[in-house]
């Protein structure tokens, strides 16, 4: 199984790693910030990037959509987050979880960690299925409900997910700023160390369970998964040509069965299954293919169950 996983380095994977690196640089291209320990303050910070990327990272050029969502929901004005939600909806419909597979820097970090050659843990199916619902709970409770309704005397609320959970914030914002700014270092208390511990657990988890955070905890992935069924970019598996060799399932970083769950809520459209399929049964179903009989005939097989 592990050998097959290591072999999954086909054409799509080579393109994907380039896109992932470009995305990481585009989202975090303010290198002067890393030198000075100061945040970028240009106008691009009003734009929500499609990925989980902390806006308190000294190199960040855009705003984190999950942080922005909590900031607007938790503001004393109590306004509805039209701009942030609309932006997320557009990314969701246009790209779906392709964002997770091709653009997310935190996803890239987890994938690099998963390359460490240790025996991977296979989570029992029942536990895996239940744990996958956790990310929807994180989205509903920590990102939406608590910031919306748990307010202080001034009518404002905390960004609960950022404060207590977000590992991207600790890795991209907290640790670099602590290293660069002695003044902030003096303020580090139990909360900071809780976040460092959680980050360590999540990163260690990613070594043994590929895409650990994406599978079980990411609220942004949970949001995009709501659009998986009808996002513009999809993948399909043609069951008529499938030889049931099981290779696609062995290399899938999300631990799903691509034949039945491709383009479902848990599929991040990374294309590793396509790269290893000996029967070429798996393909990307792009809008450009809409009138191509080859893709039209196979697309019916792509509507898999989800999650898990």
């Amino acid at each position: 199984m592990h050998r097959d996983r290591m072999k999954a380095s086909g054409r799509i994977q080579k393109i994907r790693i380039i896109i992932q690196l470009c995305s990481a640089v585009l989202c975090n291209g303010y290198l002067a910030g890393l030198k000075r320990g100061r945040l970028f303050t240009g106008k691009t910070k009003a734009f929500c990037v499609p990925v989980l990327n902390c806006y308190s990272c000294p190199a960040a050029l855009g705003a984190c959509p999950i942080g922005s969502l909590q900031a607007v929901l938790g503001s004393s004005s109590g306004r509805f987050p039209f701009y942030v939600l609309g932006t997320l909806m557009l990314f969701g419909v246009l790209l779906g979880r392709l964002v997770c597979g091709f653009l997310c820097p935190f996803g890239l970090i987890q994938e690099l960690l998963a390359k460490i050659p240790v025996k991977k843990i296979s989570v029992p199916k029942k536990a895996d299925r239940l744990l996958r619902y956790l990310k929807y709970i994180v989205l509903a409770v920590f990102v939406i409900l608590l910031p919306s309704f748990f307010r202080n005397g001034l009518g404002a609320s905390l960004p609960w997910f950022c404060k207590y959970i977000c590992p991207a914030g600790t890795l991209e914002g907290g640790i670099p700023l602590m290293l660069l700014d002695p003044g902030l270092r003096d303020l580090a208390g139990p909360l900071f160390w809780w976040k460092v511990l959680l980050l360590a657990v999540i990163l260690a988890g990613a070594v043994f369970i590929p895409r650990f955070f994406c599978r079980y905890m990411c609220p942004l992935g949970a949001f995009y998964s709501l659009f998986s069924r009808f996002s513009l970019v999809r993948m399909t598996a043609d069951r008529r040509t499938c030889i049931s060799c099981g290779r696609c399932g062995e290399v899938c970083p999300m631990g799903i069965d691509p034949v039945h769950q491709i383009s479902g809520a848990e599929c991040i459209l990374c294309g590793r299954c396509k790269d290893v399929c000996p029967a070429s049964s798996i393909s990307y179903d792009l809008p450009l293919h809409a009138h191509d009989p080859k893709y039209r005939s196979s697309s019916e097989a792509g509507h898999g169950a989800s999650p898990g």
Binding site: Y55, T87, P159, K163, G173
Partner: peptide, 30 residues
């Protein structure tokens, strides 16, 4: 439509104001 409403409502200023200052909660000291 949501994005347009948000832009007309200047919600992006909320986002910008949050994003250009260090979010103490995000980095674990707030």
């Amino acid at each position: 439509v949501f994005v347009i409403i948000g832009l007309l409502d200047k919600e992006y200023i909320n986002v910008l104001n949050k994003a250009v200052r260090i979010c103490l909660e995000c980095i674990g000291i707030g």
